[in-house]
């Protein structure tokens, strides 16, 4: 980002929205880095909340307000809670766990840095002179999103509800405890995944 800032004069006079976007983007990126590098498993889930909330603010800055609130509701409200339940049910250690990263961390770092360098180069080279016009009517208001969703995207929307139903049934089947006991009681670990998937369904 800084490299391209020196190359193009358009970057030297940022607007307020751009400054806010970059600052929140830095916070989001830092929280994401902490999510993948911290050795405390519960803290990783909490840093993920910061990263996803920062992304919701970025959506608001891009005038996609309905997406932003859906992001807050589903990701911060449900997915992170589900991940925390998963951490608890798999008896994740509280405090620092020394084996949170595997041995191929250096290889993963190399792959990620190479991918980041290549993609940043390509993206900056491609969109160096492209501007997004954020003025005028909001692109992602609830009115516009709902109208396009139920006018042009009704069939995918309904297909998606079938997919959610399949995921609900799949989660129930996977977490049934009838492997050892022939009764097949759905207790314990099955409940959080099922209830959360059911929440998405409604």
């Amino acid at each position: 980002m800084n490299l391209s800032a020196a190359a193009h004069p358009g970057f030297l006079s940022p607007t307020g929205v751009e400054i806010t976007f970059v600052l929140i983007g830095l916070a989001t990126l830092g929280a994401a880095l902490l999510t993948v590098t911290t050795r405390q498993l519960v803290h990783a889930a909490l840093w993920l909340v910061v990263a996803l909330g920062g992304l919701a603010v970025e959506y608001l800055l891009l005038t996609a307000e309905f997406i932003a609130w859906v992001q807050v509701l589903i990701y911060v409200g449900s997915v992170v809670v589900l991940l925390l339940f998963g951490l608890m049910l798999t008896k994740a250690p509280i405090g620092r766990s020394p084996d949170a990263d595997s041995e191929n961390r250096l290889v993963a770092l190399g792959v990620a840095l190479a991918a980041a360098a290549a993609l940043v180069w390509v993206v900056v080279d491609a969109f160096r002179t492209t501007w997004v016009d954020l003025h005028g009517v909001a692109q992602g208001s609830s009115h516009a999103t709902g109208e396009s969703l139920f006018r042009h995207w009704v069939l995918p929307f309904e297909a998606l509800s079938v997919l959610l139903l399949a995921a609900l049934v799949g989660a129930i089947v996977l977490s049934r405890r009838d492997a050892g006991s022939p009764g097949g009681a759905t207790t314990g670990a099955g409940s959080p995944a099922d209830s959360a998937t059911g929440k998405e369904q409604s």
Binding site: T15, F21, L29, V36, A100, L119, V120, F127, T130, W131
Partner: peptide, 25 residues
């Protein structure tokens, strides 16, 4: 707003996630 800002942020977040998928246990 410049389009490079969200694009670069998305690329960096993707690569952070890529590192996490490969390195976490």
């Amino acid at each position: 707003m410049h389009l490079a800002y969200p694009a670069v942020l998305a690329v960096l977040l993707f690569c952070v996630g890529l590192y996490g998928v490969l390195a976490r246990r």
